[in-house]
Nucleic acid binder design. Structure first.
Lengths: 100, 100
DNA sequence: ACTATAGGCAAGTGCTTACTTGCCTATCAA
DNA sequence: TTGATAGGCAAGTAAGCACTTGCCTATAGT
């Protein structure tokens, strides 16, 4: 749960994708590919981006909706809100389950 | 910079170490090893913990001070404070440098 | 001096992961 | 129906990472 979230954030390309979705939510896979290539000079294949989006979706950071042949990707920042609380607020520690 | 931080947080054992340092700051390597083993049932070698601490230190999350043959590890939560701001506050996006 | 304790260094191993390549399905426009 | 566009699936590769093993240094107690 928390593991998926931190693992998703561990990759720089995925964080850049979150940046792009922050700037404009509801983008398609191809739109994200184009932006990564144009704005960030990332020479990355469509499948690689697709796999990154799957990781972000598994972490709950991205939600998708299908419309015809398009699939739109929306950002969900809710999981990000309290991920650092367990260390920033020493009064109410929320120890994680031992890593499995 | 931000990459080191997120990479450091990506591992569950390292997050548990941060939990332990939150509970009691200024622990030695052996003390941390003992706690991981006792409280969390982690069968992990001293060197593994040492390497985790090095990663946390590179990320700025842990600071160390030597005293005689002891080396104490202190938690520094400052880097954690604003890591999600770039996505939580859409008005002032802080786009990361392209991943190197 | 000898021994125990606290820690560091470096090479090796096996699993994970980011990425590619190739092919396949589905929707829309002509 | 044909062709183009948007996306998915699966196997393979190469690099990264967590962890171990073995040995070495330094401080402290006897």
């Amino acid at each position: 749960m928390a593991d998926d979230l931190f693992k998703a954030l561990a990759d720089g390309t995925r964080r850049t994708i979150l940046d792009e979705l922050t700037e404009k939510s509801g983008q398609t896979l191809f739109e994200i590919c184009a932006r990564l290539s144009m704005k960030h000079g990332l020479g990355i294949s469509r499948q690689a981006v697709s796999q990154h989006l799957a990781v972000l979706e598994a972490a709950g950071l991205v939600e998708t909706r299908r419309e015809g042949r398009y699939k739109f990707h929306d950002l969900n920042v809710a999981p990000l809100r309290h991920i650092t609380e367990r260390w920033l607020d020493p009064h109410t520690p929320t120890p994680e389950k031992d890593p499995s």
